[in-house]
Design a binder for these strands. Structure first.
Lengths: 333, 333
DNA sequence: CTGTTAGCGCGTTCAG
DNA sequence: CTGAACGCGCTAACAG
């Protein structure tokens, strides 16, 4: 069981102040002898040192905690990113407070209030809508906000996001090449910047193709969920006597709904249909179909975000630029 | 932007003490007029009230935070369970501090120390080994520990876990019935109580079957990861000229490795092999094979755990009993 | 090297 | 109803 300052001081027969000076790193300034310092650090190395973070936070007006606000923990991408942040935080002596918002802007605001009340020193947010935090966060905390994954235009906060445009381009090129022509695109939640960029990538390839407009089929749905996948698949299939050679889904949830819908109509998913999707998942490789997926570089995303927020917490302002992380096109099979 | 006590007092022309008495719920005791109380509560309802949790924690010696220690956030089951805890915590005005341990006992201990230093009021732990926290947690916090998912024998802490024995039985019965005979079992990390119980369920069905011993094939591997799946699959295949009719995997990670191994040997996973696995995943239904999976009731697991820990934090001791939550056998296709 | 002091914001009591 | 006071454990400064 780790010791408190008082216990350490008593055990070593030195004053509490002395112990505090050593743990506080100002030992040399007060000319504590190297011997005493070593005794104290050794003791701490053996028994551990338990600090009271509540008192420390109160005094220093900072908590050594940061908040992570994401739409859904229960989503591989965000779960992965949270895992990355967690190890980065631990390395820096921070704790991570994670709150999920169900893509609900009211919950997002509530989450920010809670985290502010808990005194977090910084905030990493994957916003569900154009962020407007002036009425929620005080000025100091607003300086230490970094957005992730969703690059809403003209925010005053720095943003780190995947290069979704690149991903869209690469996926569209590979898919159309493999299918020998245009294929339908099934897209959910097109109000999200990440989705917009993905679709911009796709349509840019379309424009360079010279195909007739009616061949460029894109179905849109409001929400990014399984139900949307069913709906999008139905609308796609209305345009085809049988199935197309392939299709592109804007997210894994859409893909899941689409596959369910196809299966319920045809009994199974014909294995010669080429599947293209954004976001990657290990299980994709066990589909009988060939699958192309755009994998985000979660580790790099998290690392850059963390570097930016640490920089800001140190007071080095930096600008509110959007920073972009390359993605990888994965071919399963 | 939510107001502090001082701002509220100033805005309403009352004293800080008065506001504190109202927010603290002791207004009647000090005979604050109903009118003044209403003015204050109305103002707070409109503008919000920002409390300083560091100061509150320091004074009250509790943080209104609880810690969650799990092996891996980046694992569907634990991600789901964390999501459940998060909403339960929010409803109760608590925050959740989640730390993952990579199934490493040293990291688990470090996590507990960190969370204790942060003053959490309670701890939910999915322990990586037989929990021995006497040298890490002080007596008060030890009273508020609830274990989850892994029912190590004779702990002094309450445990909430899925009925893995039932799951093992049901899966084994369904698999052997469908395959018309005994099938191999591929099992990783058999030192984990949850895995032990799963295997006990399977072997109990075996014992009732009257099959010869050599038909009851179980391969064991130390660690629960994809590499183990490869290894287990190799050893299983050494016993079969071609593939068996079906097989059971002790976890999704094992399944993933097994499928990879089979695929690398046969080019694809033959669609007539019946797959049985513990833990469920939405993508399983898109395998061409029929898949039986044992799905844990995450919501019930989380709810019961949370009820238990709230009970303990209120000081109602309760015993250290193991509590078991039923599981569901899912047939994909 | 050590002891003392002040103050962070909150909850609580007590004397007006 | 209000003001004043105390202490939670820590940091930081200063006087020895």
């Amino acid at each position: 069981l780790a010791k408190t300052v008082e216990e350490i001081a008593r055990a070593l027969g030195v004053s509490i102040t002395t112990v505090r000076l050593v743990t506080g790193g100002r030992a040399d300034k007060y000319r504590i002898s190297a011997h005493t310092q070593k005794r104290i650090t050794d003791y701490i190395k053996e028994h551990g040192y338990r600090i009271n973070h509540a008192a420390r936070s109160l005094k220093l007006q900072r908590s050594e905690a940061i908040g992570l606000v994401i739409p859904e923990i229960n989503n591989v991408f965000f779960a992965q990113i949270m895992a990355e942040f967690e190890v980065l935080c631990r390395k820096s002596g921070l704790v991570l407070l994670t709150v999920s918002t169900k893509e609900d802007i009211k919950l997002e605001h509530r989450a920010l209030q809670i985290l502010q009340a808990r005194g977090v020193d910084g905030l990493i947010v994957a916003p569900s809508a154009m962020p407007a935090y002036e009425s929620i966060l005080d000025k100091k905390l607003r300086k230490n906000v970094v957005l992730i994954d969703r690059a809403f235009a003209e925010t005053s906060y720095p943003v780190i996001a995947s290069d979704n445009f690149q991903g869209g381009q690469e996926l569209a090129r590979a898919m159309t090449a493999a299918c020998g022509g245009p294929i339908p695109v099934l897209c959910a939640n097109p109000s999200l910047p990440s989705i917009v960029d993905r679709m911009r990538g796709v349509t840019q390839v379309w424009q360079q193709s010279g195909w007739p407009e009616e061949a460029k089929q894109m179905q849109l749905a409001e929400t990014d969920d399984i139900a949307a996948g069913h709906d999008l698949a139905s609308r796609m299939l209305a345009h085809y006597p049988s199935l197309p050679n392939g299709f592109i889904c804007s997210s894994l949830l859409v893909l899941e709904g689409v596959l369910q819908e196809i299966k319920s109509r045809y009994g199974k998913v014909p294995p010669d249909v080429l599947i293209g999707t954004f976001d990657d998942h290990p299980m994709l490789k066990f589909l009988p179909n060939r699958v192309l997926s755009v994998r985000q570089n979660v580790a790099a995303l998290a690392l850059r975000t963390f570097e930016r927020i640490e920089q800001r917490m140190r007071g080095e302002a930096g600008d509110a630029a959007v920073e972009t992380i390359p993605v990888d096109l994965i071919s399963h099979n």
